[in-house]
Amino acid sequence: MSEFEQRNAGVVAVSTDSKFSHKAWLETPRKKGGIEGCKYPLLADFTKKVSADYGVLQETSGVAVRGLFLINTDGVVEAILVNNLPIGRNVDEVLRLLDAFQEHQKNGVVCPIGWAKGKEAINPAQAAAWFEKHAK
């Protein structure tokens, strides 16, 4: 979580469960399938409206699929990652995206395939120089 805090980012999780279910899960030890000690808020979309608004409500089952939205400081969506139910997420990829969008916001550069913090991004005005140096 500190990795997100260092990047001025909050994290919140949403499901269509009730807040009471969330509380029970938060109070269940990890070894029993719980998430005791989890530091970020769990939101209860009990009416399923927010899941529907974000386009992640699976109508056949009534639950939300694993959708992740990266939202910038102005409330604009910068990235969307959606997995079907069986597959979990990759925190490192979310941090990489945050780094890339923040690099772009701060310096106006664009981040090519595989970019990660510490690698050289592309200044659009001098893209030719970047390709000269990095293209194989």
């Binding site: 919140v12 509380k23 974000y54 639950v63 939205f69 400081t73 409330g75």
Partner: peptide, 28 residues
């Protein structure tokens, strides 16, 4: 929402000026 063990209300507006990772999952 449940925030650090307490029942609270959480809005998107609470995060203006910050980045937000908002993610959905199927079930507790």
């Amino acid at each position: 929402a449940v925030v650090k063990g307490d029942f609270k209300s959480v809005s998107l507006k609470d995060y203006r000026g910050k980045w937000l990772v908002l993610f959905f999952y199927p079930l507790d």
